[in-house]
Design a protein around this nucleic acid. Sequence first.
DNA 1: CGTCCGCTTGAATAGTGTCAAGGTGGGTGG
DNA 2: CCACCCACCTTGACACTATTCAAGCGGACG
Lengths: 233, 233
Amino acid sequence: MKRSTPPTRCDNARHRLEKVDCAGCVIRDRLLFAGLDVETDRLLLSPIAHYLMKPGAMIYQEGHQAAAVYSIRSGSVKLSLYSSDNGDRIVRLLGTGSAIGLEALLEPHYQHSAVAIGPTNLCRIPTNTLHHLGKQQPELYRRLMAQWQEQSLSADNHHVHLTQGPVKSRVINLLSILESLQSEQSATFYLLTNQDCASLLGISEESVSRAMAELKRQQVLRKASAHRWKLYV
Amino acid sequence: MKRSTPPTRCDNARHRLEKVDCAGCVIRDRLLFAGLDVETDRLLLSPIAHYLMKPGAMIYQEGHQAAAVYSIRSGSVKLSLYSSDNGDRIVRLLGTGSAIGLEALLEPHYQHSAVAIGPTNLCRIPTNTLHHLGKQQPELYRRLMAQWQEQSLSADNHHVHLTQGPVKSRVINLLSILESLQSEQSATFYLLTNQDCASLLGISEESVSRAMAELKRQQVLRKASAHRWKLYV
DNA sequence: CGTCCGCTTGAATAGTGTCAAGGTGGGTGG
DNA sequence: CCACCCACCTTGACACTATTCAAGCGGACG
């Protein structure tokens, strides 16, 4: 079954900010350029754009031309893979500090679709810029490899905690992952749709709903504000 | 539950071959050094050892000092992650052409345990060698990144096909993955233990046994030789 | 104000997990 | 060389969990 509603188009939900100041970025030490000599590379960095994505906004789409890597300044993102039998299936969740779309450095097309979960703040870095920077500062390659490494490991950990055991514990594990990815505003977080949870956990949508319902009844999961939830261990 | 039998110790089951000739390697174009100027680097490459691992032999262990990357010349390898609640859980399967233990380039300890599934033929490449080579031939970095990229994607695909749907189809998907990883000798392959399959698929060992039994009854899975099996779609 | 999408809930059913009891084969030590 | 042992696999019966199908609800948005 295909997803009935396509995710919001990029253009509708992305908002470009005019002021970009990588050197002064608050979380620079967690991002791709951490520790690199950015000051001397203002010209190179100028093509970097800074976007605010609304929840549900698509960042890039599987199979489309890949000309940029994105670095998440805040918020969280889901990566999904299309398979003919199942439609889109979420394969990874990423948060602040992660770089997404790294395949743009190696291949012509994106291999996942990336969609913002909550409001998400990110930088778009054209691959050209990265290639140039890389020639001047090979340390960048190490950082890129570290990104892949870190993401593989977190994917493995998700696999371990989300794909085994009874539904209820999988759902709790998923919620704590969401909490940790978005841990900026007092541990509140945006939820995925039940459909998305089901796809991640490999279970049915109704089972997710039932598990969530029980967690709410037990007050383990409570609404913190309009779209934000909080977990009480 | 902890695995009761520790995997065979390295020393018992690994056999070092004396003759190493990377330049003449039959599958050089699928391995890490493909296309690199290896001829002029004989000195650098000399520390590369070549091993034959018996089925079940441990290649490296999670948490141990990481001083080398391994490149799989033939055979297949399982990577597992330890978690306190479950003991070892398999998170990835890799075959000919893949490089394992890449984390050695970035971190002091291995993050997985790696165990040979069938007889496995591999090269051990000290990280020093890679770092030196990398300085001279930055193309190597691209290859390394491509390895990570490729492995992430295959991990994602495994996740999609092994963690959803009824047990029987998951088992079949797992078998075809094993088949494709070891596709050298007329599409026959070594099986994982039921325990390992169960851990990969997130189901119980008995369910694996039952599914396998049915596949054998239906002649979808047949024994080809002592330890080798073959799949008849 | 109405429609649509996603969420919730129920009841019946099929699928899995669990527990328990044997079977099998390879490896070890007497 | 044989017998034992241990790990691994198999099978059955049963309880229980999760899926499925179906109906109704609620909020978001035009």
